[in-house]
Design a protein around this nucleic acid. Sequence first.
DNA 1: CTTGGAAAGTCAACAAGCCTGACGTATTTT
DNA 2: AAAATACGTCAGGCTTGTTGACTTTCCAAG
Lengths: 165, 165
Amino acid sequence: MSDTQLGDNLLFLTDEQLRQGIEAMFFAYRGFTAAPDQLLEGTEYGRAHHRALHFIARVPGMKVSRLLTILGVTKQSLNRVLRSLIDDGLVESRVGLADKRERNLYLTEKGSALEAELSESQRKWVRSAYRKAGPEAVAGFRQVLEAMMDGEMRRVYGTLRDGGT
Amino acid sequence: MSDTQLGDNLLFLTDEQLRQGIEAMFFAYRGFTAAPDQLLEGTEYGRAHHRALHFIARVPGMKVSRLLTILGVTKQSLNRVLRSLIDDGLVESRVGLADKRERNLYLTEKGSALEAELSESQRKWVRSAYRKAGPEAVAGFRQVLEAMMDGEMRRVYGTLRDGGT
DNA sequence: CTTGGAAAGTCAACAAGCCTGACGTATTTT
DNA sequence: AAAATACGTCAGGCTTGTTGACTTTCCAAG
């Protein structure tokens, strides 16, 4: 953070600065996903399964349609992932009480165990980065990430924070 | 940023806080890649092509082996991407001067044009997020991202910043 | 009460992008 | 001359995403 970069609230947005931000995002995302990916490699599951497990753990009873919105994939794509998780007894799919078209998703004990393992490996990495950077940097990090979300995703993100069902 | 979260330098690293960071990273990355992805959809190119173009633009004359390290993919995978870019006249591959086994990669005018378009769309998004969050948040953002990189990637990232060839 | 549309989920087939393994060629190093 | 390096390619496989066509369920308008 030398000379010309800070100080002026506008001048730091040079194309060069932005390119560096873009590259940082690219490299950091790789580090971010490396730990769980490694845990999963060799198994029959991948990153898509991890994501599904994560959000079902986050909101037990999550509807398939909500998971679809969150993950931003087609229902056919999600279905394949969910199918294997259900068949393998990691996720339980219960017919909706009010509306029988809906399916409510829950982790089984086995599913919880895997999710916890994956989540812990990733949290460990993020925790370490947070510690290195310090609380103020983390606050800024979160602000920029939130600003970088697409509008709809910012809404979804908000409802997750507030434990929304 | 309410009550119990800040203030203590350790207490803010609850599992809940870390999970939120993980989700923020997930949603933000989607926003981050959306603009160039959209520009490319309908064409015969994808995100992999964009990444190659980006780094060749960044370091003209980039060797294939270096690009391989940066992108973290196999040469077979990169080759397919590079093949189409070269065949379509977006990238030029010149035999190395010092070592004739090497190939130095350059963007053609056509390649530069596409790269500029993709890059501008992405920079526009990042610039907007930076403006919303403010300079201090951006500094923190960059710090956390750097801490979140795998060690080798942090090195690579550094050499790119310093215009390293 | 029926009928027709919308919503939720499933099955099938296919594409993109990444992977491993094996091999070939040119060049450089030992 | 032999070994190592840099690059390219063929073959085959996996994961994750896509579209299209279908069933089941729900709800509302006639």
